[in-house]
Structure formats: C-alpha cells, structure tokens
Amino acid sequence: MWVRGIRGATTVSQNEEQEILDATIELLKQIVMENDVKPEDICSVFITTTHDVTAVFPAKSIRQMPGWELVPLMCSLEIPVEPSLPRCIRLMVQINTEKRQDEIVHVYLKEAMKLRPDLVKAPQ
C-alpha cells in the first residue's frame, strides 16, 4: 500500500461563503467518486485558496460531511504568483491505496481546468 496524492482545483465567481462551501464540496465529491475513495482511506486533505477567497474556511464544508469528522484538514494561502488564477480553491487529498500513480484521477473544475489541461477529462 502507498500514500498517493490526488490533486484538484475549482474556482468561485465571488468571495461568498455559501459559494465557497458548495464549490469545495463539489470538488471533493468528484475526487472521491473518480478515485473510489472512502474517508477512512484518507491520510489528510490540504486545502489552499488564493488571497481573494476569504469569506470562510473551505474546510468547514468538509468537516460537516458525515464520516469526515476525523479526517485531518489543513487550510492555507496559495503562494501569490502573478498572474495566478483568481478565486481558486485547491485540494491535495492524500490517500492510502493500492493504486498505481497512473491510476489516480486528478480533478479540475470550472476555470481551474486551465491549470492542468493535460489532466482534464473530456465530457462524456
């Protein structure tokens, strides 16, 4: 078994609490679904935001999900490199898994698809 990192990112249109919480949950649920992950498989989740996402800690939405109460979460500020994508939320979900690195599915939603076009799946 290995520890693997699953990357993901999304954006919000405005710095508004409910939109930030909803976007974070949408991204996490997509990561979990694409990688068949259960909370007990997760080592930790690192969450970063750009400097313009300040209305709420994105971890708040994850902490309220059933079964996620014990998953270690950490929020921090993304390095402000210019020009960076505005209003961006990024996740690094570290999991215990038997999957190979090339079996991990990274998830980029909304404007964040521009960050890693090489990893974005075509719509089905």
Rank of each mutant, 00 (worst) to 15 (best):
T11P: 01
I47N: 06
R87Y: 04
V105W: 06
V12G: 14
K29I: 02
Q124Y: 07
K121A: 15
S61H: 01
S61M: 03
Y108T: 00
E26M: 10
E34N: 11
I20Q: 03
P58M: 07
D36A: 15
K99C: 06
F57A: 11
T24Y: 04
E78K: 09
P72S: 12
A55P: 01
K110Q: 09
V3C: 06
P66A: 14
E34I: 02
E98H: 12
K38H: 10
L77S: 12
R63L: 11
I89K: 02
P117L: 13
Q14Y: 06
L21G: 03
L91P: 01
I42G: 06
A23Q: 06
K38Y: 11
L21N: 01
E16T: 00
N96L: 14
P117V: 05
D36C: 04
R63A: 15
Q124D: 03
I89R: 02
V120T: 07
C43G: 01
V56R: 10
V37L: 14
S44W: 05
E111D: 15
Q18L: 09
P86R: 06
L21I: 00
V32L: 14
T49I: 01
D22K: 15
Q64L: 14
F57C: 05
H106K: 09
M113V: 06
W68Q: 07
P86M: 06
V105L: 11
V53Q: 04
P83S: 12
R87A: 05
I31D: 06
I6S: 08
E82F: 14
K38T: 04
L77N: 05
I89D: 01
Q64F: 09
V3T: 13
A122P: 00
D118G: 12
G67S: 07
T24E: 05
M113N: 02
L109G: 06
E78S: 13
K38A: 12
P58G: 13
P80S: 12
F46N: 06
W68F: 15
H51Q: 10
S13P: 00
V56D: 02
V12Q: 05
T10A: 08
K38G: 02
M65Y: 08
V107W: 09
S44Y: 09
K99D: 04
I31L: 14
V120Q: 07
W2S: 15
F46I: 01
L77T: 05
E19V: 03
G67R: 05
R90D: 00
L85F: 00
M92T: 01
G5K: 07
I95V: 15
R116D: 03
V107H: 12
D41V: 07
P58A: 08
V71I: 13
W68V: 03
K121H: 11
R87N: 07
R7C: 07
V45N: 10
E34Y: 11
V32C: 08
L70V: 01
K110E: 12
K38C: 06
R116W: 09
Q14N: 09
K121I: 04
C75M: 09
I25K: 13
V105D: 10
E17F: 00
L91Y: 05
M113P: 00
P86N: 01
S44A: 15
V53N: 07
P66V: 02
V32S: 05
R63M: 08
A122W: 04
P66G: 11
S84N: 11
K114Y: 03
I47K: 03
L21R: 09
